[in-house]
Each structure stands twice: as structure tokens, then as C-alpha cells.
Design a protein around this nucleic acid. Structure first.
Length: 433
DNA sequence: TCTGGGGTCCTAGGACCC
DNA sequence: TCTGGGGTCCTAGGACCC
């Protein structure tokens, strides 16, 4: 049995903790480059602002302007720190926890007594201790817990959509079968975890509309006609656990750092800076999980939205002589790849570096090293990481990422950013009497 | 003018092997 | 007239998630 603890409108809620004046107003948080809406307050949702709606279009809409829509640049340092606080409280709900995303965690609750009341306590505690509102859904499988969470939030936001007792905390696990069916029947199949736009449309075309319709499908038939993935979803809806609980996060199999530029970029030297920066960031993540990369992929492309421009999109995978987590080696390979795919004359909108073929750094092929006898780059990298943790990102870096004198024209726009209230001494909020 | 970033898994088809 | 069977590995693309 599982509980899913999920923050409401998470990024917006994080911002509201430190700016209470935003309560009750239509607020959105924007993606990098202030591109599109990635988190919306309930008020913003009511105004019809879609997930992923471009900010420049929202700004052009007079009715949204009149409604006083307020946008903020994403502040991921803040959200990550607030997430840690929420997660550590949510962990108190049961013996094991899987942190599924920045705002969601599954908690194994088998054997927990007085579960519904306890979940309400944890929900209130998260709100009181962090200021973040959340919903908790409980079900026999992860898919049912997800669905229960949807029920908890809907019953809270739109009275009448589900029975009021489910508001904020919905425990579907202790429901009689007929009551569970009624909840599934009231839930559109598109709300089910694992059913996206494409599969959802195919199921609708078959005359299926609710989660209950999907739960009643024959699992073997679903496997034949669709896939084992959808089969698992069907079985999970039927109460049979098929999706493993992962209380220790498995190591990533690939690590990426990709960014849209703040403005179109054409010059190679700007791209070298950007790609060097992305490679360094990716390498930091790589070392954090104690892996080495066997290959580096680098890509660039123009903006697919600018139909009037000549389009260009190219990537290349550069194999490394041996797996490494050394920023200098990874950066050199990424930049070599960049030179190979660069074509002048295009207005490039985005570039990225991906580290592939990741393997445990402990498992290294023994080798007679004639090139580089005695060099211990691992210790060098550890020292660089330690300095950057202590003195801030980029305190020690390769010169190719751009020095004080370079323009760094490619960096992203963030015009509406709030302070790092919880992770930077100089940004600490001040309380006034 | 202005449209995010970072992942995972599965499947089909081709290349290749004996 | 008549042209096997079984298997692995890799890649690209699709679909999904937040």
C-alpha cells in the first residue's frame, strides 16, 4: 500500500511562502529564458492559462493582463531546498520513501495504523512547518495512489467533483470495492498515470472514457494490442502492483545539460563557451553519482518556431578513449564534437551536452597508462568540486567557459527572478514587526 | 522580438552471428 | 520445383513522466 504526497502548484507555492501577498492572485512561474508557464496557481488555471503556454502570448492577452496575472522566473535553488524540507516531513508517514520528483514522493505505508488520520497530520505538518500545501493520496498500487492524489486535490479545489471527505487526503485503499469503482468511474482516463495524449486518444476511440473503463479491460488483450507498458497500468488499476517501489534512487544512465540561449547565437566562440559550461555542469552531476561517462554527445539547433529562418539541427557522439569524469577531458571532447557539427550562418537557439554510456567509477578497466603516468585527476576533480561547493558555482572553472572579460552572450534571460531566500546568506528574508 | 529541461522504458527493424 | 532457424546487439523513434 502506498501514499503519494504531492505539493500543490509546487513552484508557485514555494514563491508564495516568502511573498504572502501572492496568495489569492493568479501567479505563474516561467521556464528558463522566461519562456513558458511551468507552474500555475489555481487562480491562473481558472483563467485558462495552459501548462507550457508561452509567456509572450500570455502578455499579449488583454483579459489576462486585466486579471493581474503575475509571472516569476524559475528559481530552482529555492524549489530544491523547499523540496528537501517537504520530503523529510513526508518521510514520517511510513517506513520507506521514494522521491519521485521535486514535488512528489511515494511513501510505503504497509502496516501503518490509523492511516488516514496520520496522513492528515502529516499534511498539516508540512503546511505548518514549510508553508507548502500538498495533497496525499493512498492506494493499493502506485497508480492508484496517484489517482487518489488527483482525487484529493480535485475534491479540495472543486467541491462536488468527488465526495468532500476526500479533500486534501484521499484514502482509496480502505474503500469497499463498489465505492472505489464509483471513484474510478468519476475519473477521466486521461488523468490516469501512464496514459498520455496518444494512448488516451486511442482508448477514447474505442469508446472508453473513465479510469473504470480502463480498469475493466482484459490485461492480456491490452498487451497484444498496445504494449506491456499499458498492460501494467491496467493491472495496477485493478490493484495488482506492477511498478516497483524504488527507495534508493538508481544511478542515472545518462546525464544532460542543455539550454536555450537568451538570444540567437551564430559565432563559434560563443558556442564553445556555452558547450564548455554545459559539459562542466554535466560532469559535476556525473561525479556526484560516482560514475564515469564513455561517450559525450553534443548538439546544436535553430529555433523550430522561427519558420522563416533556415533550420539546422545536428548532433554528434564522441567516444572517449576510456570512461572518465574529468571535466577537462569531457569538455575537450564536447568542444571537438562541436567543431565537427558547427556550420556558420545559422541563428542557433539551443545547444546541449549529454553524457552517455555511464558506468560505476569503481569498476574501471585496468590499463597500462603510458600517456599520463601518475596523474590523479580524480583527486583534482574532488578538490575543484569541494571549492565550488564552498565558494559558489564557478569559483574554479576552465577558462573555456568564458572569463570575466567575455560577453557570455548565450546566457539565459531571467528578468523576474526572486531571491534565493533559503540558500544564500545575503538573500535571507527579513521579518518586520 | 518572445516557445524549458531532464529523464525512462519499450518496440521494431537492421546487422550480424552460427 | 526447390532457398532454415534461432539468437543477440544496436539504434531510432515513440510514448510517457514531472
Amino acid at each position: 500500500m502506498y501514499a503519494l504526497v504531492d505539493g500543490n502548484n509546487f513552484y508557485v507555492s514555494c514563491e508564495r511562502v516568502f511573498r504572502p501577498a501572492l496568495q489569492g492572485r493568479p501567479v505563474i512561474v516561467l521556464s528558463n529564458n522566461d519562456g513558458c508557464a511551468i507552474s500555475r496557481s489555481n487562480e491562473a488555471k481558472e483563467l485558462g492559462i495552459a501548462m507550457g503556454a508561452p509567456w509572450f502570448q500570455i502578455q499579449q492577452d488583454p483579459s489576462l493582463r486585466d486579471a493581474g496575472i503575475l509571472a516569476l522566473s524559475a528559481n530552482f535553488c529555492l524549489y530544491g531546498d523547499m523540496s528537501n524540507r517537504m520530503m523529510s516531513i513526508a518521510a514520517g508517514l511510513g517506513p520507506e520513501q521514494e522521491i519521485y520528483s521535486i514535488d512528489e514522493s511515494f511513501v510505503g505505508v504497509a502496516g501503518v495504523r490509523d492511516l488516514t488520520r496520520r496522513a492528515r497530520t502529516v499534511r498539516d505538518r508540512i503546511l505548518q512547518w514549510t508553508g507548502l500545501p500538498c495533497g496525499i493520496g493512498i492506494g493499493a498500487t502506485k497508480t492508484l495512489a496517484k489517482l487518489a492524489n488527483h482525487v484529493a486535490k480535485s475534491a479540495d479545489r472543486r467541491p462536488g467533483s468527488y465526495p468532500a471527505e476526500f479533500a486534501r487526503v484521499a484514502n482509496l485503499a480502505e474503500l469497499p470495492a463498489s465505492d472505489l469503482d464509483a471513484v474510478l468511474a468519476a475519473t477521466k482516463l486521461g488523468e490516469v498515470w501512464g496514459i498520455g495524449r496518444r494512448i488516451g486518444a486511442q482508448l477514447q476511440a474505442e469508446g472508453l472514457h473513465s479510469a473504470l473503463d480502463v480498469a475493466r479491460l482484459d490485461a492480456a488483450m491490452v498487451r497484444r494490442r498496445w504494449s506491456v507498458v499499458l498492460e501494467r497500468t491496467v493491472r495496477e488499476l485493478q490493484g495488482q502492483p506492477c511498478i516497483a517501489f524504488e527507495d534508493v534512487a538508481p544511478a542515472k544512465k545518462e546525464i544532460a545539460c542543455t539550454r536555450s540561449f537568451g538570444r540567437p547565437i551564430t559565432a563559434l566562440h560563443d558556442l564553445v563557451e556555452a558547450v564548455s559550461e554545459f559539459a562542466a555542469r554535466a560532469a559535476e552531476k556525473l561525479r556526484r553519482q560516482a560514475s564515469n561517462a564513455g561517450q559525450v554527445l553534443v548538439f546544436v539547433h535553430t529555433s523550430p518556431f522561427r519558420r522563416q529562418d533556415r533550420q539546422y539541427s545536428k548532433s554528434i557522439t564522441v567516444p572517449l578513449r576510456r570512461p572518465t569524469a574529468d571535466t577537462a577531458l569531457l569538455t575537450a571532447s564536447a568542444v571537438r564534437g562541436l567543431h565537427a557539427i558547427y556550420q556558420p550562418g545559422y541563428k542557433l537557439a539551443k545547444a546541449g551536452v549529454m553524457l552517455l554510456d555511464l558506468q560505476d567509477a569503481q569498476v574501471e578497466q585496468g590499463e597500462l597508462d603510458l600517456d599520463d603516468p601518475g596523474a590523479d585527476r580524480g583527486r583534482l576533480m574532488a578538490a575543484v568540486d569541494a571549492i565550488n561547493v564552498r565558494h559558489g558555482r564557478g569559483a574554479v572553472k576552465l577558462a573555456s567557459v568564458g572569463t570575466a572579460g567575455s560577453a557570455r552572450r548565450w546566457t539565459m534571460r531571467q528578468d523576474l527572478r526572486t531571491p534565493d531566500y533559503t540558500t544564500r546568506w545575503s538573500d535571507l528574508p527579513q521579518a518586520r514587526a
